[in-house]
């Protein structure tokens, strides 16, 4: 079992290598020793990582966590296999950056698209925005319907998984 976390658009793998005498985690193959996990419930936390104390704040989100460390906040999203399998790692979905409504759907299922081609135009906060294909491929699913609303992070379109070659 490997945990897949998306940080800033790239997916990272976290897993457990050992628990005794200390918790040892692997992040993308790099070993880290975790000690003194602080259980504070107020959101302020600390732990010792590779012998160094780090303090951070954390909140769980719907599909991941938000971490504040060194004066910066980072949103992490869990990538589950359902999405990964259909989308080949999460880079294959057109995702709503904010809640809004669909103004126009430019592509249909089966259409070939190139990276950067507009798939859907949305309106959010009185602002129209074009959402583009994240890579070359074929549209496998359009979940957006003109005039309909959606929530932030909603998947509006999907590309077919890359063909094996």
């Amino acid at each position: 079992m490997v945990l897949k976390l998306d940080l800033g658009g790239s997916v990272h793998h976290v897993t457990i290598l050992a628990r005794r005498p200390h918790l040892v985690l692997s992040v993308d193959g790099r070993r880290h020793v975790v000690q003194d996990l602080d259980e504070a419930s107020d959101g302020r936390r600390q732990l010792t990582l590779d012998g160094k104390l780090i303090a951070f704040a954390r909140a769980g989100s719907a599909d991941g966590a938000i971490v504040r460390l060194d004066g910066r906040s980072f949103a992490l999203h869990r990538r589950d296999a359902a999405e990964a399998s259909a989308a080949g790692g999460g880079a294959n979905v057109v995702r709503a950056p904010m809640p809004g409504t669909v103004v126009m759907v430019h592509k249909r299922v089966g259409d070939k698209v190139q990276r950067g081609e507009t798939v859907v135009t949305i309106e959010s906060m009185k602002l129209q925005m074009k959402l583009d294909a994240p890579r070359d491929g074929e549209i496998a699913e359009i979940a957006a319907h003109e005039g309909e609303g959606f929530d932030k992070d909603a998947v509006l379109a999907r590309l077919a998984a890359p063909a094996e070659g």
Partner: peptide
């Protein structure tokens, strides 16, 4: 280095991963 810290801090906040770790 920072990225790994963030990932570890986040992972240990996910209930199932934390259960798995501890």
């Amino acid at each position: 280095e920072t990225r790994d810290k963030i990932l570890i801090a986040a992972a240990l906040g996910l209930r199932d991963f934390r259960d798995l770790a501890l």
